[in-house]
Design a protein around this nucleic acid. Sequence first.
RNA 1: GCCCUAGUAGCUCAGCGGUUAGAGCGGGUGGCUGUUAACCACCAGGUCGGGGGUUCGAAUCCCUCCUAGGGCGCCA
Length: 462
Amino acid sequence: MRKPLPIKALFDSDYIDQQVYVAGWLRSARRGKRFSFAVLNDGSCFQSLQIVIDNSRFPAHVLDNLHTGGCIAVEGTVVRSPGREQAIELQAQNITIFGTADPATYPLQKKQHSLEFLRTIAHLRPRTRFFSAVLRIRNTLSYAIHQFFQERGFFYIHTPIITASDCEGAGELFQVTTFDLNDVPKQDGMVDYQQDFFGKPAYLTVSGQLNVETTALALTKVYTFGPTFRAEHSNTPRHLAEFWMVEPEMAFYDLEDTMDLAEEFLKNIIQKVLDNHQDDLAFLSQFNQVDLTERLKRVIQEPYERLPYTEAIAILEASKKNFQFPVKWGIDLKTEHERYLTEEYFKKPVIVYNYPAEVKAFYMRQNDDGKTVAAMDVLFPEVGEIIGGSQREERYERLLQRIQTLGLKIEDYHWYLAIRQYGSAPHSGFGLGLERLVQFCTGMANIRDTIPFPRAYGLLNF
RNA sequence: GCCCUAGUAGCUCAGCGGUUAGAGCGGGUGGCUGUUAACCACCAGGUCGGGGGUUCGAAUCCCUCCUAGGGCGCCA
């Protein structure tokens, strides 16, 4: 099949007076007496291409079927546009109609639709300027994440989607089963999992971290980047039940090395959005009412503030602010505390580290003070925590003791403990929720607008 | 899980006890036009989210359910 030239190419270099073949979806079509105008977009870039159609050269069945939403291919000559709103346009010589769209029923109009409405037509919203811009930026971030780690000698590891137990306590689990739930096999009144697919209970992963640690203690620097599933009943614009998470894990990295890496990582991938998406950012800035270029530059230019938890608490206590959640040593930082630190006190990203052990996960490395663990959170203005990470507890006895203290089952963690028993090494890592970063970079207020088909509590359409 | 707000035409909304429920956009028809979310005229389009109640009378007040959005918690 003949391959169309991406419309992006027409705007990136000079095609004036050249014959080209393009294809895409009509954003609008205006019929005139002598000329018709069609606005064609193929998603390759923010811009659309104006097609100029001399009505006398085309039969009625072509002209009658040019409507918003239709898919066409056009062969024609690129010329400078006499119109003010575009530099170039295409004089059509041949038009192929691939798919019509009945304007009486096609839901998208050539006007701004509410994001709420677009969520109800998730199968069509990639055709909008809003959503295509978000998807392009999401792609750039994903690619930049791989580039960043690949260029630094990290290996991409595929951790399992189905897991045998809640190995982090990171959240509520989705159970996986092939049982007919109307007729579950039972033994002594309890579900007989021996008859289930795996012969035991199975779940969707809430984090690849514990699995990826085993490969860090073999390949030294690794990362996993895949879907994650949490069954929390969270009903907010910041939570999804299915989201994508990046988790690097490095042997011979301590907490400070990890903070260095996290900062370099964020600056690197956000820079790529600035480098490649001026049009998308300008559009999203206008409609999300935030200067995204400014927002992104702000987290790239300056060094992030690094602050032990204990000092963060002291700053919050000294602030005399009337927080909804009172501040005292031992609490986990709430959104309002994070925002005070990043937006009012330091006015830039802040990395808080050495948190009280009680508010952090069992696997984090215990500090010598006996109270805190080597954890760190990168906090961004406006969004709060964007990265959470830690140095892992590599000392077998310490980890075993912690697992026992928290009442976790040792047999569930036998392999996780075993890598501390044989050739253990200091190691660290962090996790980044992709959609939260897409939210930050695009200014989308609702995380459901950062992924093509959002899944959330009570929400599973399409 | 808790709290708040809102569901009226395909979309965005007005109407908030009293005739036959309105506008803009979108759609159809006609006109006009190198147009720019074009423009002008006419036409079609609604069980006012579902159910129950109060009232002479309910889109409007009350109860309840559903759906959507926002705030908080949990978290990434």
